[in-house]
Amino acid sequence: MKKKLAPFIEWGTLLFCTGTVCFFLVVILWDIVSKGASSLSWGFVSTPPANGMTQGGILPAITGTVLLTLITALVATPFGISCAIYLNEYASDNWSARLVRAAIRNLAGVPSVIYGLFGLSLFVQAMHMGTSMVAAGCTLGLLSLPYIITTTEEALRRIPASTREAALAIGATQFESIRDVVLPAALPGILTGIVLTLSRAAGETAPILFTGVAFYINSPSGGLNQEFMALPYHLYMLSTQHQAIEQVRPLAYGTALVLLIVVFLLNLAAFYIRYKHSKK
């Protein structure tokens, strides 16, 4: 009897672990979706906050997050791809490449709040950008750089050497072979990595805390050199700092749901690119 029961207990233990993890996910999604759905309406996503944040929508926070993510992409993508090309196409395995790789691994482990301090020192103060959209975007760009480099390098590595040799053998320069053959072939992989990285950046709060985010601004479409609103920070403020916390709770749930939707949409886009490419 004992012998027959043992496998079930063992299997059950592991199943319990897996089930608990899934339970966490389900609780998170269920709580936010079920309680946020009632706040979600066209008005909520298309109007600015009103009456000291107790009413109205979150339009400026949405546009702020979208713009911020775009700036992040503009900063991180060119440098990230270029650095990945350096590592995979030009340097393969010399000491300088090893040094760069070590730097990337360590950068990926640096806590995001420290990026916030770095952005404050470098962009806000030293480069006189002030607390602004650009300063925050640049900070998030630096944070995203190691991930974009790693995923791009991965995508480049999957292109076989014979593809490069084919281009070189008909008289292409190395740059031409990368531009015309290697990059187009690696594009789906690179795009997937970029979109996934941006979905992380869109949900980040700590790096923008001291570099430009604000709880409320008067002109919703302020310039790039001004402070801005963002979804994650809005959620943080609504749930911790507002004087009428219980009253704005539905708004907080709505904001959480919108943030979750933005992040999952980006993830879905990445998934789609990967799927479409794998079918080819």
Binding site: V21, L25, S199, T205, P232, L259, N267
Partner: peptide, 24 residues
């Protein structure tokens, strides 16, 4: 099913998890 579920859990922004810490 499990792999995307884990990826989804990784994608939830930390501020949303913190929010649930407060309200739930």
């Amino acid at each position: 099913i499990l792999k995307p579920a884990v990826e989804m859990l990784a994608a939830v922004p930390s501020v949303a998890i913190g929010f649930l810490g407060i309200v739930a």
